[in-house]
Design a protein around this nucleic acid. Structure first.
Lengths: 225, 225
DNA sequence: TGTACATCAGTGAACGCGCGTTCACTGATGTAC
DNA sequence: TGTACATCAGTGAACGCGCGTTCACTGATGTAC
């Protein structure tokens, strides 16, 4: 029925599909049109919180006030972007995790998947990495929510891993949180890194995560300094 | 000679000290006047990168264009703020470290000093914690520079600690970096925390840091998974 | 100590700009007959 | 199938605002005599 392009901005209209070129009037505006326009503007050197409503509207090819038909304000758009980013990245890391279970190490697999995505210049990932500390309360809360999803999944993994290997594990939730926060903080700085340092950076990040994992194992056997 | 109030905004002028109240003209404007004004505006919910030149000038009680006599632009002011923040916090942590050497644990001492400062609502600390991921290149570079100072000092401490205790230590620089980044990332989220969760948060942060320290020790003895 | 004068720190007014938001509109979409 | 009509998604114009930056000024500071 509809021509089914659902993800990209120049969207086919339901029935008459921009009929005989009435200029100055967009046939149908979807939330996704606006989200895609915002994503085009965001990048390693441009954060969501600096986007203006008019700028996004311009990029989407719509009148500034048409924005209001889809979102209450820029804050609502920002939250939508963060939710989207979180869902996307969780999917990617989830796959990496499953690959890792049959393959080598969960740590290595996940860190590599994370870095691959970072290298791929994924706009959604950029958003999650950088926007956590600025912006409105709603904004920060949305990022916190996504991070805690990661932590939950990672915690389950750590528990499973510990049981499988017969190793100990103190405070799995805390361990998961430490790893998540460290990886995201490091990832944020990695965005500005020249590409030739990527390999070394990945190695460093892996060692860091391993320190935490090994630390929690050791502490579970011998809770001293 | 001069009346020596050097840190606060309503500054005594060198000789005639705002003579007979000429209104509308400030006797002398110093860089510090402007820095102090900016600090008044910054807080847990207001980041440096959202300050406007006119806003800072208003707070400092000067004409907007007088700003230019002291700073080229807001970017230069932001970098000055970050340098100041870094110097201040390093001083505080440095003291905590020395206390800790004679006292108990370096980890505990430093984490506690950090959290004390955070609780004290130190504007300078807020800046360092949150501004690292947004703002201009010069801005980010300034934060990176301050963080790397911390890492250097911490690395020296870790080496000294390992020698004193006879414990191992792989990649001290990496260990220091992991701790620094984790603590700062966690600290950024702690600013928005209700005060009654401070104690629990401090405990968690301490455990996290200890995981890393213990992890690097264990890995130095047995570099496996 | 007084006086004339150069310097330049601080100023008020004005500029053009992009912003968020509002308003009444218009014309395409879909429905009732 | 064709026509009349209600709905409402998208619009262009306009608003008032705060912004960064410029300009020519003025009057206090400090110096030379």
């Amino acid at each position: 029925m509809t021509t089914t392009i659902t993800d990209l901005s120049p969207q086919a209209a339901p029935l008459p599909a921009a009929p005989h070129g009435t200029p100055g009037r967009k046939a149908v505006i979807s939330r996704d049109d606006i989200i895609q326009a915002a994503l085009k503007l965001v990048g390693p050197h441009r954060s969501v919180s600096t986007l203006s409503l008019r700028e996004v509207a311009r990029e989407a090819g719509i009148a500034p006030n048409s924005f209001y038909r889809q979102f209450r304000d820029m804050d609502e758009l920002a939250v939508a972007l963060i939710d989207l980013a979180g869902r996307s990245l969780r999917g990617i890391i989830g796959e990496a995790r499953q690959r890792a279970t049959v393959d080598r190490s969960v740590v290595r697999g996940s860190v590599e998947a994370f870095m691959e995505q970072l290298r791929a210049d994924d706009k959604l990932l950029h958003i999650l990495l950088r926007e956590g500390t600025v912006g409105s309360p709603a904004f920060k809360a949305a990022v916190e929510r996504e991070l805690s999803f990661f932590e939950d999944e990672l915690r389950e993994d750590l528990i499973r891993l510990a049981e499988a290997n017969g190793t100990g594990l103190i405070e799995p939730a805390l361990t998961a949180k430490a790893i998540t926060r460290l990886v995201f903080a490091m990832g944020a700085t990695a965005m500005d890194l020249p590409p030739e340092q990527d390999a070394e950076f990945t190695r460093q990040l892996e060692v860091m995560v391993r320190m935490i994992v090994v630390g929690t194992q050791t502490l579970s056997e011998n809770p001293s300094a």
